[in-house]
Design a protein around this nucleic acid. Sequence first.
DNA 1: AGAATAGGTAGGAGATTTCCTACCAGTCAA
DNA 2: TTGACTGGTAGGAAATCTCCTACCTATTCT
Lengths: 104, 104
Amino acid sequence: MADVFAALANPTRRELLRLLLERGEQPVQQLADHFDMRRPSLSEHLRVLKDAGLVTEQPIGRQRFYALRPEPLREVSDWLGPYERFWRARLADLREVLDGLPDE
Amino acid sequence: MADVFAALANPTRRELLRLLLERGEQPVQQLADHFDMRRPSLSEHLRVLKDAGLVTEQPIGRQRFYALRPEPLREVSDWLGPYERFWRARLADLREVLDGLPDE
DNA sequence: AGAATAGGTAGGAGATTTCCTACCAGTCAA
DNA sequence: TTGACTGGTAGGAAATCTCCTACCTATTCT
């Protein structure tokens, strides 16, 4: 769980997740084409994502396909839950204030 | 937005947010009491949270009250949206598979 | 078998993070 | 005004992160 937040802290890794979401599973080369970065660095980012459980790796021939594994993101969503209630309450307060205003 | 993910990457900062959510606004000393950490380090964490827009600071006398500002978390929630659809689809797939099994 | 391809590991440089001690500035109380 | 209190800044050490180049392994194609 802690690893998930740490994994999400890096923009390249968030972009990797986005690519995997949009295009489905991809070999490393195809992912790498979209970054101005050497492959070893990409490999490192993919390893971090894998350690956080955010992607899976499946070797096929000499390629390795990476796929999104969104379950840990669900934990992030659950973590957000209590805060979500808080900001909804704030919005409700705001609405109440606005409703109370004249000329509206 | 990037700052928000970076701010959430640290466990101490997530704990600070949790304390502010549970107890409402608090002066630094009261927050510091719950960490085994010197105050300058806490100050630094609070600064990061403030820069990310996750807390507000209000000086009253010689104290500074920090309060949760959950709006940036809403952006995180929005960012999660597309992935949430993905994992719900996965759950639906799983349910379908389970429904298709005999002996159930 | 030999060459090409996919993608990893090793190791290191530089930047950033996270903690610390020492000290400073503002506020309040005697 | 002096002393105590709150909480910040300055600066630095150690750890970690993010990138790199060089090289290795496994697979496939000829």
